[in-house]
């Protein structure tokens, strides 16, 4: 069971959180013209790295805040977590 540090609440066990996927995927700006390829890249295509992965977690059984985490997909080590408006320590 992973131990995840919610930037608002502190360290908690994984079963309080739900996963939100790749955090580097940026939703295209609303109302802006966008090519089909760029749109599909947003909806379907992923970098899927082995190693450091910037991802979203939701403290769903806690403060209900979404936040960012930097985690190794091969070892599951979590390097850092931060609020959405902060930058992860790289």
């Amino acid at each position: 069971m992973l131990e995840i540090k919610c930037p608002y609440c502190g360290k908690r066990s994984q079963n309080e959180f739900s996963y939100g996927g790749d955090a580097t995927v940026k939703r295209p700006t609303l109302g802006e013209e966008i090519s089909t390829e760029d749109w599909d890249n947003f909806v379907y295509f992923r970098d899927n790295p082995r190693g450091k992965h910037t991802e979203l977690w939701h403290h769903v059984s806690g403060c209900r805040q979404w936040f960012k985490a930097s985690r190794d997909t091969a070892t599951h080590e979590i390097f850092d977590t931060c609020k959405m408006n902060e930058a992860l320590n790289e």
Partner: peptide
């Protein structure tokens, strides 16, 4: 609810 929170906190803060 999670969907709304996602858009409010992540996409359109």
């Amino acid at each position: 609810l999670s969907h709304l929170e996602y858009y409010l906190q992540v996409v359109w803060p």
